[in-house]
Design a protein around this nucleic acid. Structure first.
Lengths: 119, 119
DNA sequence: CGTCTCGTACGATAGCCCTCGTACTACGAC
DNA sequence: GTCGTAGTACGAGGGCTATCGTACGAGACG
């Protein structure tokens, strides 16, 4: 088992292939405010970050859970690098599967935040 | 009883105003396959339809529930017309709040269906 | 009026999901 | 080897949700 991928670390992390990514799972993943904020931050910085980089209002256990949901939905890619687990957006795959969706979503989230800020 | 909304002998249906529509609620509403199919059909035909128009794999009670979720999320507008309850997409409001999002979503759903059909 | 259809309300059930705490493993540094 | 840090696993709790069945109300139509 563990086919070929884990070139870097040792622990294997199952990711869905592009053909397996379901729109409903993506929407469900993004419907949670904690996960949406993770995705927004990943998209804004455009790089990969460790789980511990994010300042989330939940415990470590819950953080692990949210990142797994995002990974299993096909939204983020995760890879171990030492003890750290680096997270990055699967932007290219998502853009190919659902053209424009991610950008619209991020713009919508940003607009929502602005509107909330305006009061 | 029924103290509030006494107006005009008809049943009142509370809709969120555009400013109250939350992106997360919209995503949550669209994350369910039954509700997504409803929205897709409404968008495809571009008109308003009674609840009974849709051929859903659930009972009447559950159908009522799903339409209410869509209405309370701000995705559809509902109005009584005789015994029928007409449903229509709140396209303009949604497009104003989340530009391009609905189209991307619908295109993504359509693409997903095609991919599934292809096997 | 009676009856039929459309949809609602209510209660119940089962499953999922977010959250947590605690105990544990994996890796790097000293 | 020992320690510290990053993250996982497991179990539990509380809440939400999708589903149903049955009983009910609102209009249309004879």
């Amino acid at each position: 088992m563990t086919p070929a991928t884990p070139a870097a670390g040792s622990r294997g992390l199952p990711h869905p292939e592009p053909g397996q990514i379901r729109l409903e799972a993506v929407l469900h993943a993004l419907a949670d405010p904690v996960r949406l904020s993770i995705v927004r931050e990943l998209a804004a910085d455009g790089d990969e970050f460790a789980c511990s980089h994010f300042d989330l209002p939940v415990t470590k256990s819950t953080t692990t859970h949210h990142f797994r949901v995002l990974r299993e939905a096909g939204v983020v890619r995760q890879a171990y690098r030492g003890t750290a687990k680096m997270n990055s957006l699967r932007r290219e795959e998502l853009d190919r599967l659902f053209p424009g969706l991610l950008d619209c979503l991020l713009r919508a989230a940003a607009g929502q935040a602005v509107r909330l800020g305006d009061g």
